[in-house]
Amino acid sequence: MPSETPQAEVGPTGCPHRSGPHSAKGSLEKGSPEDKEAKEPLWIRPDAPSRCTWQLGRPASESPHHHTAPAKSPKILPDILKKIGDTPMVRINKIGKKFGLKCELLAKCEFFNAGGSVKDRISLRMIEDAERDGTLKPGDTIIEPTSGNTGIGLALAAAVRGYRCIIVMPEKMSSEKVDVLRALGAEIVRTPTNARFDSPESHVGVAWRLKNEIPNSHILDQYRNASNPLAHYDTTADEILQQCDGKLDMLVASVGTGGTITGIARKLKEKCPGCRIIGVDPEGSILAEPEELNQTEQTTYEVEGIGYDFIPTVLDRTVVDKWFKSNDEEAFTFARMLIAQEGLLCGGSAGSTVAVAVKAAQELQEGQRCVVILPDSVRNYMTKFLSDRWMLQKGFLKEEDLTEKKPWWWHLRVQELGLSAPLTVLPTITCGHTIEILREKGFDQAPVVDEAGVILGMVTLGNMLSSLLAGKVQPSDQVGKVIYKQFKQIRLTDTLGRLSHILEMDHFALVV
Rank of each mutant, 00 (worst) to 15 (best):
E144G: 04
R91M: 06
T191C: 04
K97P: 07
G26I: 04
G274Q: 11
P49M: 08
S217R: 01
L124G: 06
K83E: 12
N113E: 03
G11F: 04
S147F: 01
G14R: 06
M250W: 00
P78A: 11
K82H: 10
F99S: 06
R190S: 08
I214T: 05
I92T: 09
E270H: 04
I80C: 11
K75D: 02
C244I: 04
D249F: 01
G26F: 12
I188R: 04
K25M: 10
N194L: 08
A157N: 08
T13V: 09
T235I: 12
F112P: 05
D234E: 10
N149G: 00
L248H: 04
R164L: 06
Q7W: 04
G14M: 11
H22L: 09
P78Y: 04
A265Q: 07
M250F: 05
R51N: 08
T191I: 01
H22A: 02
P145I: 02
S27H: 12
L81T: 09
A155K: 03
A226N: 10
R121L: 00
G246R: 14
D133F: 02
S175L: 07
V160G: 08
P2C: 12
P74F: 07
E131R: 02
G246H: 05
K82C: 07
G153L: 00
S174G: 04
P41Q: 10
Q222C: 00
V189S: 07
I76L: 13
P2G: 13
I188A: 05
S73Y: 13
D129P: 04
I152V: 11
P16E: 09
P273R: 08
R45N: 09
A237W: 01
R266E: 07
S50C: 01
D133S: 05
K247M: 15
K267W: 08
T262D: 01
G31D: 13
S3T: 08
I95G: 00
F111S: 00
G134I: 02
R196S: 09
M89V: 10
P145G: 12
L241V: 15
A48F: 09
E144I: 08
F99Q: 06
S61F: 09
S27C: 12
A48K: 10
S175H: 11
I167T: 12
E128N: 07
D140Y: 08
M169I: 11
V10R: 09
A186S: 04
T236V: 01
L268T: 04
S32M: 03
P59G: 06
T150A: 02
Q7Y: 12
P200V: 09
A253G: 11
R209H: 13
K119M: 03
A130T: 08
P138S: 14
T235C: 15
W208S: 04
S227M: 09
G259K: 04
C244M: 06
E213K: 12
G134F: 06
P78E: 07
S202Q: 07
S117T: 06
I166H: 06
V118A: 12
E128D: 08
V168Q: 03
A114K: 06
S27A: 12
G274R: 14
R164M: 01
Y163L: 02
C109M: 07
L56F: 14
H22D: 09
N149W: 00
G116S: 07
N194V: 04
N93D: 11
N149A: 04
I188Q: 04
R209M: 08
I143K: 01
A159E: 07
D133Y: 09
D129N: 13
S50D: 08
K108G: 04
K97C: 01
L81P: 07
A114D: 09
A8W: 04
P41L: 15
M250G: 01
T141Q: 07
S217P: 05
G256W: 00
D133H: 11
H218G: 01
S199M: 02
G14S: 06
T257S: 07
A207E: 01
D249V: 01
G259C: 00
P21V: 05
L156T: 04
V204G: 06
I142K: 01
F111V: 03
D249M: 00
L210Y: 03
L101A: 03
L241E: 03
Q7G: 09
I188Y: 05
